[in-house]
Nucleic acid binder design. Structure first.
Length: 595
DNA sequence: CCACATATCT
DNA sequence: CAGATATGTG
């Protein structure tokens, strides 16, 4: 079966993979070209990012993958990456001479599917096709995940503009549809001419969909969510308000359950983070935190499970340094959520009470304190939202139970995917049509590992039209002092405290940071989570490709991804560039990685 | 009537 | 259990 590669030589895949290499250094360009050709790839080189972009735009389906240098005079490699991610959803591999983590981090955050260090080795190039392949697979999965929607899904084809992706292997697509049609037919027979009697197709909240949902929720702000708003934000045509409402109901339930679980153990072990004002530049700080964190936690012996512990153990300290892969896996970034003013803890109607509490606590989970200071800034989202254990958004019932749409990159690189999924509001939605046979083995293995989140960014405007804080702000506030990670611990269920935060950055305290998840033995949630992690992540693969890390990362990643996405999205929305500058994702949800 | 929360059903 | 649907409220 073909994989939908537009490549003329799809049959010989990966030979013929169309690679676009962008590097301002002609020497490198030559070298790479040679190497790539040796791999039987169809190589196109380009010395200017601008030209590359132009080329890509002109020949939308002309390439399968892009390899770009980071440092280029005319256009920052990241910028290019960003554009590619947004406009054509192609896998992009970044490369540079130095492996400065911050840079790599940035690349990753911008959606690079891999990051190569020069000199690039043949072996690495030989394997780049994996990214393309993986992407294809993901696309397929995505489609599959829509099967549950029966006819509704068809609309996707029509309504969504698709710039995306290579023409699918229509055959499969069709077959998928066919099946649906059949199903519908059956129903129709029963309900014949009374359309009103027809039951609505059940919405299957795939990881993906859920992801969007969570994104929307976060975006709106926990205390302000409403089905309608979410629906709008999600921008999923066939979804109804009821669907969302229902899901929201479950979601809340889930969250409150979660909260309850952790609530009891309240304690303060957090340290004050007296001044966060340090003006660290994004990426770096995030990175730093992530990297250091493990060490700290280990050293400190504190709640070792500050998430990364697991990773630490597996990865080994060395990783904390040069090894990108390792680092990346630490990327427990999380992103602050913007909220209209969530700190304002506006008491709502009585019946909202519970929710409020929830909100609050969620906040606390995510270093709320840090964000609390700004009004319409960000708010950490309940990172655990939707992940793992509890709320199980459907694992697609269909074909093999691959619950998680694979994300592009996991298989071999530990890069969380951020990328290409972010689309401009307008161009939104990918249209994936390719369907291919799934590599069973692969999927089985990876299966639960990742939750590829695919973002779909939210719509354009904040519904309320409120403005967004300057990002820089965010950066400062969000940055988490690595040192504090080791000490994170529980806190009261934040609510009370949070709401009274005196919104001043300096007073930010970390006292109630990761509370819930961090709590030792705080319940089965953790326990089970841990188990899951172990089971899913390590089985069999540890030794390989940093899998362990990525696995972990992705595994519970919905939150992360969400965050990343959101953040990214915001970046786009608000201009963009801040992304590059303030991409730092505070480390936080390590709790999710509890060991 | 709408949007929402909540309860209950499937 | 997840999601749909019914009911009640503002």
């Amino acid at each position: 079966m073909e994989y939908g590669f537009a490549s003329p030589r799809a049959d010989a895949f990966p030979a013929g993979l169309r690679v676009l290499v962008v590097d301002d250094d002609p020497t490198w360009l030559k070298i790479l070209e040679k190497m790539l050709k040796k791999c039987s790839y169809d190589v196109t080189t380009c010395g200017l990012a601008r030209d590359a972009l132009k080329m890509l735009r002109e020949r939308k389906d002309g390439f399968d993958i892009v390899i770009s240098d980071v440092n280029m005079p005319d256009m920052d490699g990241f910028k290019l990456l960003e554009h590619v991610g947004l406009e054509m959803d192609l896998p992009v591999i970044m490369m540079s001479v130095d492996g400065e983590t911050r840079r790599v981090m940035k690349g990753v955050q911008h959606g690079a599917c891999d990051y190569l260090l020069k000199p690039v080795r043949m072996k690495e190039l030989q394997n780049i096709w994996q990214h393309v392949f993986r992407k294809k697979i993901n696309e397929v999965k995505e489609i599959e995940s829509l099967e549950g929607y029966e006819d509704t899904w068809i609309r996707r084809n029509g309504s969504e503009g698709s710039d995306d992706g290579p023409p699918s292997s229509g055959g499969d697509t069709i077959s998928v549809k066919k099946r649906k049609d059949m199903e519908n037919k059956e129903h129709e027979d029963q309900e014949l001419n009374d359309p009103s009697a027809v039951k609505k197709a059940r919405v299957v909240w795939s990881v993906d969909l859920h992801q969007k949902f969570v994104n929307a929720v976060n975006y709106i702000g926990f205390d302000k969510v409403g089905p309608k708003k979410i629906l709008d934000l999600m921008n999923v045509p066939w979804l109804t308000r009821e669907n969302v409402a229902s899901h929201l109901q479950k979601y809340r339930l889930y969250l409150s359950r979660l909260q309850k679980q952790n609530e009891p153990k309240v304690c303060f072990a957090g340290t004050r983070q007296s001044d966060l004002t340090s003006k660290d530049t994004c990426g770096s700080s995030g990175l730093q935190s992530s990297i250091t964190m493990p060490q700290n936690s280990v050293a400190t012996g504190n709640y070792g499970y500050c998430g990364n512990t697991v990773l630490v153990q597996d990865v080994g300290p060395e990783t904390c340094d040069g090894d990108m892969k390792g680092i990346i896996s630490f990327l427990p970034v999380t992103e602050p959520k913007r909220t209209l003013h969530s700190d304002a803890y506006v008491p709502q109607k009585a019946n909202n009470g519970s929710r409020q509490g929830l909100t609050r606590s969620c906040g606390s989970l995510g270093l709320d304190a840090n964000y609390a200071s700004f009004d319409s800034t960000i708010q950490p989202q309940p990172s655990w939202s939707g992940e793992i254990t509890g709320m199980q958004f459907t694992q697609q019932p269909k074909k093999e139970q691959d619950p998680y749409p694979m994300s592009d990159d996991y298989v071999h690189l530990p890069l969380p995917r951020t990328q290409h999924n972010h689309r401009q509001p307008t161009s939104s939605v990918n249209h994936r049509t390719a369907i291919m046979e799934r590599d069973k083995a692969t999927s089985a293995e990876i299966k639960a590992l990742l939750i590829g989140y695919r973002s779909n960014h939210v719509k354009k405007e904040s519904p309320t039209g409120h403005t967004v804080e300057p990002v820089s702000f965010q950066s400062e506030a969000d940055i988490v002092n690595p040192q504090d990670f080791g000490k994170m611990s529980t806190a009261t269920s934040g609510s009370s405290q949070m709401k009274n935060q005196s919104f001043s950055p300096s007073s930010i305290s970390n006292s109630e940071p990761l509370q819930q998840n961090t709590i030792p033995g705080s319940g089965s949630f953790l326990a089970s989570l841990h188990k899951d992690l172990e089971v899913c992540s390590f089985q069999g693969y540890i030794p390989e490709n940093h899998f362990n890390n990525i696995d972990l990362f992705n595994y519970d990643d919905p939150a992360f991804s969400t965050n990343l996405q959101t953040h990214f999205f915001e970046g786009q929305r608000f201009g963009c560039d801040y992304l590059c500058e303030s991409m730092e994702y505070p480390v936080m949800d390590q709790s999710l990685f509890i060991a």
